[in-house]
Measured scan of single mutants.
Amino acid sequence: DETGKELVLVLYDYQEKSPREVTIKKGDILTLLNSTNKDWWKIEVNDRQGFVPAAYLKKLD
Rank of each mutant, 00 (worst) to 15 (best):
T3S: 12
G4A: 15
K5Q: 11
K5E: 08
K5S: 10
K5M: 10
L7V: 08
V8P: 00
V8R: 01
V10R: 00
L11A: 03
Y12R: 15
Y14Q: 00
Y14C: 02
Y14I: 01
Y14N: 00
Q15N: 12
K17M: 11
K17W: 04
S18A: 11
S18G: 11
P19C: 08
P19L: 09
R20N: 14
R20E: 10
R20V: 10
E21T: 06
T23E: 03
T23N: 05
I24T: 03
I24N: 00
I24R: 00
I24A: 05
K25H: 13
K25N: 08
K25P: 01
K26D: 02
K26V: 06
K26R: 10
G27Y: 05
D28K: 06
D28A: 13
I29R: 05
L30A: 15
L30E: 04
L30V: 15
L30T: 04
L30G: 15
T31F: 11
T31M: 12
T31E: 09
T31C: 10
L32V: 07
L32N: 01
L32F: 02
N34C: 11
S35D: 13
T36W: 08
T36Y: 09
N37H: 12
D39E: 13
D39Q: 13
W40K: 02
W40M: 06
W40F: 06
W41I: 02
W41L: 02
W41G: 00
W41K: 00
W41P: 00
K42L: 15
K42Q: 13
K42F: 15
K42I: 12
K42C: 11
I43T: 02
I43W: 00
E44N: 06
V45Q: 08
D47W: 07
D47S: 12
D47Q: 12
R48H: 06
R48T: 07
R48G: 05
Q49W: 08
G50L: 07
G50F: 09
G50T: 05
V52N: 01
V52S: 02
P53K: 03
P53C: 04
A54H: 04
L57K: 01
K58G: 05
K58N: 05
K59H: 07
L60W: 08
L60T: 05
L60Y: 08
D61H: 13
D61L: 11
D61M: 11
D61Y: 11
